[in-house]
């Protein structure tokens, strides 16, 4: 039995302009200790998927499908049981370390909170554990830092504190939603390395969400590319870039700046914008931006099909996409 098994997950957010289908029919599973990278541009439903897993979506939303965690469907769990899971068996790190910590509470109090809540530790025990955790995530002088407020720490240190908080109860699964996007490049690597080493030590499962294919490829076992609220391509990281076929994935890959590109060559971009989640096209959501799109793409959405072992792609024109890969689909 996998640790996490998501089947047919769909999320509809009700907005002032109508219902936005933020996530559509997502299927994936995660084993203990496995790392999954979800990549895609802003507004593709990555964060909504993460929040759906945690059961932290806004009240005005509807979630359907199944999220089985240790064999239990989280969508059917009452709120009190979800509270007992959150921060305990499943934890999350957010994008904005600058605003993710409560400005009026000390670091110590915030790190101690889940320990007191889930582990029923006494103040003294929680304090000792908090010092250990802060030390573990590389905060210098942890004893002293306990009394500090978030504004007295740098962005990188705040993210370290967030990580300490998330790991405090040794969860089975850690969801990191763009954990390094708001940080300096030099700090980004340190934080990713820290997450990696901690995940490995604790044998935790990790879902790493990023818009950066580079970050994802270096830190995961499996990659899932999302577009317009659905997975368009998924496969093992090791062979992913070789097997990579979906026109959107190709575009995403080609849009990455590469070393030695020279200043004369322009960075490739995918023309067009992400689809409006309120008025999604009925067929493949990438149709309007895809150079290979045909009438078939417009009419019905392509299902995920297995290309090689474990590598699935949702596209009607796979052969053409693959043959054109060498010369560059968007060149």
């Amino acid at each position: 039995m996998p640790l996490l098994n998501v089947t047919g997950l769909s999320v509809t957010l009700s907005t002032a302009d109508g219902a936005a289908r933020a996530v559509r029919d997502m299927n994936f599973s995660l084993e203990k200790g496995e790392t999954l990278g979800i990549v895609g541009e802003s507004g593709c439903g990555k964060s909504i998927t993460a929040l759906a897993l945690m059961g932290l979506l806004p009240e005005r939303s509807e979630t359907t499908g199944k999220i089985e965690f240790n064999g239990e469907n989280l969508l059917q769990k009452p709120e009190t049981e979800m509270c007992a899971l959150r921060g305990n068996r499943m934890a999350m790190i957010f994008q904005e370390p600058m605003t993710s910590l409560n400005p009026v509470h000390t670091i110590g109090r915030q790190v101690m909170e889940p320990l007191r809540l889930h582990k029923n530790m006494t103040r003294a025990e929680a304090k000792a554990e908090a010092v250990r955790l802060l030390d573990r995530v590389g905060i210098p002088n942890p004893q002293e830092r306990l009394g500090n407020y978030p504004h007295q720490l740098s962005g990188g240190q705040r993210q370290r504190v967030m990580i300490a908080m998330a790991l405090s109860c040794s969860p089975d699964i850690l969801i990191a939603d763009e954990p390094t996007t708001a940080l300096d490049v030099t700090i980004q690597d340190q934080i990713l390395e820290l997450i990696q080493s901690l995940v490995r030590e604790e044998d935790m499962a990790l879902i790493l969400i990023s818009h950066d294919l580079g970050v994802i490829s270096e830190n995961t076992d499996r990659i899932m590319v999302m577009y317009g609220g659905a997975a368009v391509e998924t496969g093992p990281t090791e062979t992913f870039f070789e097997a990579l076929s979906h026109p959107y994935s190709q575009g995403l890959f080609a849009a990455m700046p590469k070393l030695g590109m020279g200043r004369t060559s322009r960075l490739m971009t995918i023309p067009g914008v992400v689809p409006d989640l309120i008025n999604l096209p009925s067929g493949c959501t990438f149709t309007d931006r895809c150079p290979l799109a045909t009438a078939e793409c417009r009419n019905s959405a392509p299902p995920l099909r297995q290309l090689t072992a474990g590598h699935n792609v949702a596209c009607y024109h796979l052969d053409k996409a693959r043959t054109m890969k060498a010369e560059g689909l968007f060149a």
């Binding site: 932290l56 709120e79 921060g87 993710s100 809540l117 889930h118």
Partner: peptide, 15 residues
């Protein structure tokens, strides 16, 4: 609407 409120909820605190 603040991020740290979401953090608190993610820790397992009730509403």
């Amino acid at each position: 609407r603040e991020d740290y409120v979401r953090t608190a909820r993610a820790k397992g605190l009730s509403q």
